[in-house]
């Protein structure tokens, strides 16, 4: 006990060291000092914790409850229906299944392309180019705009811009009605998100690449390694931690895509590009089936949480190893 309180004092908490001193003098259950400290603690932590509880915790937990009800959001009646919503989602809701598969497919494609292109861009701008700084800015710029504006920009590109390029060049790829067909509309969303995400990922890879000691690379070059071997056996292993970070960043953001999905295709044509987040939104606020929407949201949460927990475990493990 004694040694523990000493440690606390060394750790430097003013409050704790003062209360422990006080304790030795008098023994009332709640001393004045303790009360004052509790008051200070509440004053400092209280406001944001209150907002957090009201905005995040309470809705999150009531949401779990609503997932097991037939709440429609309009009438006051909320009936407990047990696992009915989940059974419906599992066995009947074809659109949910389609959205789920589509989102998974999209996530995989977006992760691979965003990271590959982001890494490529980082390699490019860390060469000794004269235009490196400008290019960095250019590649990063799409990232500033939110998904909503990006989707609208590309809506114009796909509808009018591509048609015009197709007319001028005669390349059939540009003559397609990109947003009018399920397959190309899917790739349209991929293009928009890669255009947005690659620059962001590039910034992180640049930071990692700049930490690779130049001497190592030069030594390997002198020993006769070619550029590819240097990249494969020296640079890549050294930036591996950044790769982990970027992979998870893109996984989480791709899986949760909403804004660009809404503004570019709004799920169309015929709901063929409706990703999970948009599907949940439609279920709740368009179909007014809040209970089922919540059940979907709960499943959505469990997947996102699983990804995040995996990320934390992997990066912790790496920290221990290194």
């Amino acid at each position: 006990m004694n040694s523990q309180s000493n440690v606390k004092e060394v750790d430097g908490s003013v409050i704790v060291s003062e209360t422990t001193k006080h304790k030795t003098e008098s023994k009332p259950f709640l001393s004045k000092k303790k009360l004052k400290n509790a008051g200070l603690f509440t004053l400092f932590v209280g406001p944001v914790f209150l907002a957090f509880t009201l905005i995040v915790l309470i809705p999150f937990f009531t949401g779990i409850y609503y997932a097991f009800t037939d709440w429609n959001g309009v009438t006051g009646s909320v009936q407990w229906v047990g696992l009915d919503n989940f059974k419906y989602l599992l066995f009947e809701d074809k659109q949910f299944h389609a959205s789920f598969i589509l989102t998974t497919k999209y996530t995989v494609v977006a992760i691979v392309l965003t990271n590959a292109i982001g890494f490529g861009l980082a390699l490019l701008v860390t060469q000794m180019l004269k235009t490196s700084n400008i290019l960095r800015t250019v590649f990063f710029m799409p990232n500033l705009l939110g998904g909503l504006l990006l989707g609208f920009i590309w809506q114009f590109i796909f509808v009018k811009g591509f048609a015009s390029i197709g007319e001028l060049t005669g390349i059939p790829l540009f003559e397609l009605a990109w947003l009018g067909d399920a397959k190309t509309a899917f790739w349209g969303i991929v293009i928009v998100s890669v255009w947005q995400g690659a620059g962001y990922i590039m910034i992180i890879y640049i930071a990692a690449l700049q930490n690779v000691p130049q001497e190592l690379i030069e030594a390997a070059r002198i020993d006769g390694a070619n550029r590819w071997q240097v990249l494969r056996h020296i640079t890549m292993p050294l930036v591996a931690p950044a790769v982990t970070i970027c992979l998870f960043l893109t996984t989480a953001s791709s899986f949760k895509i909403f804004d660009a999905n809404l503004s570019l295709t709004n799920g169309g044509p015929f709901k063929s590009t409706e990703m999970l987040a948009l599907n949940i939104y439609t279920e709740a606020f368009v179909n007014n089936r809040y209970g089922i929407g919540e059940a979907k949201a709960l499943i959505f949460f469990l997947i996102v949480a699983a990804i995040s927990v995996l990320q934390v475990t992997i990066s912790k493990k790496r920290e221990v190893e290194s």
Partner: peptide, 21 residues
């Protein structure tokens, strides 16, 4: 820890009851 843990909750899992509360 509760602040940190809540960071993984996606907005879609909160929005429906949030609007009601």
């Amino acid at each position: 820890m509760s602040f940190v843990a809540a960071m993984i909750i996606p907005f879609q899992s909160i929005m429906i009851p949030l609007i009601k509360t």
